[in-house]
Every structure is written in structure tokens, then in C-alpha cells.
Amino acid sequence: PAVCLCLSELTEVQKKIRATFEAFDYEFNNTVDVREIGTIIYALGCFPSQKDLHDFIAQVEEDHTGWIHLDKFLPAMTEVLLEHKFPPIPEDLVLQAFEVLDKEKKGYLDPEELTKYMTQEGEPFTQVEMDEMLTAHADHEKNCICYKDLISQLTIDPDL
């Protein structure tokens, strides 16, 4: 089925994509390092699987150079956003997952515990990704991750 879309909505979507892309265009030449694409896509409220992310990169990367040009990224990402591909997991399901991991019902996980789960299960995080997550989200004074706070930080309001 065709999607009816007003021009101003399309313009707003493309402005949002362009602004997010440009935040990672450190050379100001309308290109970004391919390694930044996942972060850009997540920042736009999309959460692809690793396979979907690799497929998307294959679609937009410039001849396996390691660089993505805005001219290829913009139309592909516009389609992703308008078709609501790669939606986030609902907040209540993320909370349920954390509660399953929190067998003692403490309301938090130890960094070592979370690292074990995140690097050894499902689509595992790399150690670099895990380090970034712990740096950004761990309570360093209490040496824990209060997952309800983490969920609120990671959840994106779909209306924004």
C-alpha cells in the first residue's frame, strides 16, 4: 500500500537524518566512517539486528572503501524511517529482560554480571561497546547498573 506523505513531513525526516549524519562527518565532506553508521542509525531511533545493519551498510557503502556518502545514506535512511524498519523493542519487554537477569530482584545488575550477559549471549556486544555502555550508564559510586534508569535513557520516544 502506498503511503501518503506531505512534503513538509518528508523534509523534516530528511533534516533529522542530515543533522545526525553531519554530527559524525568530522571532515565536513559529506562522508562518514562506515564504523559510525550503527551509531547514527541508533541515534535516529532505529535498532537493526547485526545482519540488517550489515545489509544496510552493503547498500550504502562507497565501493568497499570504508566510507558512506550522504548522497547514498539519505535516501536509504529516509526509506527506513518512513517504513518504520528496525523499530526499537518496547520498553516493557526490555524491563522484563532485565528482571529475568536480576534473579535476586535487587533492581540493579553488577557491571561484571551485565558484561557477561551482553558479551556472551544473543548478538554479543564487543568489549569496546561494553566499555562505552558501562562508562555512560554505570553508577560508579555504587558499582552497579540501575536498569530502570538505563531503560529510560535508552528508550526513544517514537513521536520525537
Results as ranks from 00 to 15, higher is better:
Leu134Arg: 03
Thr119Glu: 03
Lys142Ile: 00
Phe47Val: 03
Glu9Met: 15
Glu61Pro: 01
Val94Met: 12
Glu36Arg: 07
Val128Trp: 08
Ala2Val: 08
Glu91Val: 07
Asp63Gln: 12
Cys6Asp: 13
Ile156Val: 15
Thr39Phe: 06
Gln120His: 15
Val32Asn: 01
Phe98Pro: 00
Pro111Gly: 06
Lys16His: 13
Phe98Thr: 00
Val34Lys: 04
Leu150Trp: 04
Tyr42Thr: 12
Ile68Gly: 02
Thr78Leu: 06
Lys72Ile: 01
Glu83Ser: 11
Glu27Tyr: 05
Ala19Glu: 13
Lys142Arg: 14
Phe125Glu: 01
Glu129Leu: 10
Pro48Ser: 07
Leu93Tyr: 12
Val3Trp: 05
Leu114Val: 04
Gln153Asn: 09
Trp67Glu: 09
Leu109Asn: 00
Asp55Glu: 15
Gln59Asn: 12
Ala58Arg: 11
Pro90Ala: 08
Leu93Pro: 00
Thr65Ala: 12
Asp55Asn: 15
Leu109Phe: 02
Lys142Val: 00
Glu123Trp: 11
Ile57Pro: 01
Leu154Tyr: 01
Glu61Thr: 09
Pro124Tyr: 05
Met130Arg: 02
Glu12Met: 15
Lys106Ser: 12
Gly66Val: 10
Met118Trp: 05
Asp131Ile: 10
Arg35Gly: 08
Thr31Asp: 03
His137Asn: 13
Gly38Ala: 09
Pro111Thr: 04
Val128Pro: 01
Asn30Cys: 11
Thr115Lys: 15
Lys16Phe: 05
Val34Pro: 00
Asn143Gln: 15
Ala19Gln: 13
Leu109Val: 03
Asp25Tyr: 02
Pro88Cys: 11
Gln127Trp: 12
Met133Gln: 01
Glu27Trp: 01
Arg18Cys: 13
His137Tyr: 15
Ile57Met: 08
Gln120Phe: 12
Asp149Tyr: 09
Leu74Arg: 06
Lys15Ile: 08
Trp67Asn: 07
Leu5Tyr: 03
Ile37Glu: 00
Ile37Thr: 04
Asp149Ala: 07
His84Thr: 09
Lys148Phe: 06
Leu53Arg: 04
Leu44Gly: 05
Asn143Pro: 05
Tyr108Cys: 07
Lys116Tyr: 14
Thr119Ser: 07
Thr126Pro: 03
Thr11His: 09
Asp139Trp: 07
Asp157His: 11
Glu99Tyr: 03
Pro87Leu: 07
Leu150Ser: 00
Asp63Tyr: 08
Tyr26Cys: 12
Ala76Thr: 06
Ile156Glu: 03
Asp110Gln: 15
Ile145Arg: 00
Asn30Ile: 02
Ser49Lys: 07
Ala23Arg: 11
Lys103His: 13
Gln127Arg: 11
Leu5Pro: 04
Glu36Thr: 05
Gln50Tyr: 08
Cys6Pro: 02
Lys105Thr: 10
Pro158Val: 08
Gln96Asn: 09
Asn29Trp: 05
Gly66Ala: 10
Glu99Trp: 03
Tyr108Gly: 00
Glu62Gln: 12
Leu114Gln: 02
Glu61Ser: 10
Ile40Tyr: 02
Leu134Asp: 03
Thr31Met: 10
Val100Ala: 11
Val13Ala: 12
Glu129Pro: 04
